[in-house]
Design a protein around this nucleic acid. Structure first.
Lengths: 248, 248
DNA sequence: CGTCGTTTTGACCGCCTTCAACTATTGTGG
DNA sequence: CCACAATAGTTGAAGGCGGTCAAAACGACG
């Protein structure tokens, strides 16, 4: 890892402002939050479940996976964190991380001391509320994933995941015209959907055959938005993004 | 439903005090929180996904399920709420419920206006922190459920669920000597684990055959704690209860 | 050009689902 | 107190979805 001193990027501020209104004072205090910038190469672990942390991360650039090890040595990915997300904000109040964090792509993170964050929350309740809300949304996404892996068939699970990622990336301005960079290998998809690598491959072929998507070289294109949403039983409400752009 | 005016029971206060230390003033303000008491008969819906609520519930007595409908008309249960839990606290900041709430047993609930709760949080930051923390724990449980339904086999899923419920009920003083009332039908278990009703039945027989549990008439007895924990790959950390009482 | 990770294909097998029927238990009204 | 209905649990048989194993094709990169 490579460390640099810096100040908070726009990523977090943008995220929080999508949840609550911030005054100029709050915005500038947020910008002045002292952070340590951290660069992590692709594939590297950022922290492990059980780690006791005195700071938490903000994703500035890149894709981060949240995962848990299972007995057989396999991983279950429980969520993906994108720029603006704080994948271990839970540690602010609970002290121990309860999942592994790994950089899927090369990532730029900001590390914020819990003490700094806590005093910021004390001074500006609106910021505390925004952070709280962001953890609620994260919880809501976990809950939807329970439904996804618990009750849908392989093609539906993948369709749902693609809809979710497209929606979130659009909200970040990282997708346009139903095209986005989604740098996940089929192994990542398998670990996120609770399927085997091989069955993911075959299910992707099925989605292609039905002309719903193309997905090559980490680039996802959705050809039939409503068709994919139907296949994945996708309803964007649980993501709580302002204007989802999916018609039911 | 049957409504009565009343004041907050000990259930919530006890729950919050397990998460943060409260001053006597905070404790009494919490007790003075105006609530409307609601009694719900077994099997009845409490609210639906998508409802816009101006108040939220505290479970005082009984078992509540959180669930989402899927396309085929089936349900996926995403969590169980026990006394002291606030299963739709999410609505405090996000306005819309994102799951159905249903009374599994006859339930006594307390309904608290969001405005009252919000002003209480504003006056006592420690209470806000405790509530925030409780939502973080709930999120942590969702995350573990993703792992459970995403990566474990039938018997493991059930074993894990039983370990979780036993741990939580113990923390509430509702279990003793590895015995607790767990008023869930096999259909509930199926909906919570993402299995079919029939396979739940057969997996339960397997757990009994291995002399890990008995489970009849809504009463769970764990005969082999470590064996069950191993089968379910259960590690109580994610529940964030003070003293779990499971040896690794 | 060889190496390593990723994707793809084929064959086989098993966990779990589905369908159908039967039993046990609980509750209700005559 | 019994008849009946309704709910919950159990058993059997058949079949499908997806897992596992093995190997080949493909692509990126040094």
């Amino acid at each position: 890892m490579l460390f640099t001193k810096a100040f908070t990027s726009q990523a977090l501020a943008a995220k929080l402002e999508s949840l609550v209104d911030l005054s100029t004072e709050e915005r500038s205090s947020l910008g002045a939050l002292p952070i340590r910038q951290v660069d992590v190469p692709a594939g590297e672990l950022i922290c492990r479940a059980g780690d006791q942390l005195s700071s938490c991360f903000i994703v500035l650039e890149g894709f981060v996976s949240l995962s848990k090890e299972t007995a057989a040595g396999t991983r279950q990915i429980t969520a993906f964190a994108l720029p603006g997300d704080m994948p271990d904000l839970l540690g602010l109040h609970l002290k121990v991380a309860n999942h592994d964090l790994a950089a899927i792509t090369p990532c730029r993170l900001a590390s914020v001391e819990h003490s700094d964050l806590r005093s910021l929350c004390r001074t500006f309740p609106a910021i505390a509320e925004a952070l709280w809300t962001s953890t609620l949304v994260a919880g809501s996404v976990f809950e939807e994933w329970v439904v996804n892996v618990g009750s849908r068939k392989a093609t539906s699970r993948l369709a749902h995941l693609f809809c979710e990622m497209m929606t979130r990336l659009e909200a970040l301005g990282l997708a346009r015209n139903d095209v986005c960079d989604l740098p996940l290998t089929q192994v990542h998809l398998a670990e996120a959907t609770g399927l085997s690598r091989i069955h993911v491959n075959r299910s992707l072929q099925e989605l292609r055959k039905q002309e719903l998507i193309t997905y090559t070289n980490g680039r996802l294109t959705i050809h039939d938005r409503t068709g994919l949403a139907q296949m994945g039983q996708f309803d964007p409400d649980y993501l709580h993004v302002p204007r989802p752009g999916w018609r039911t």
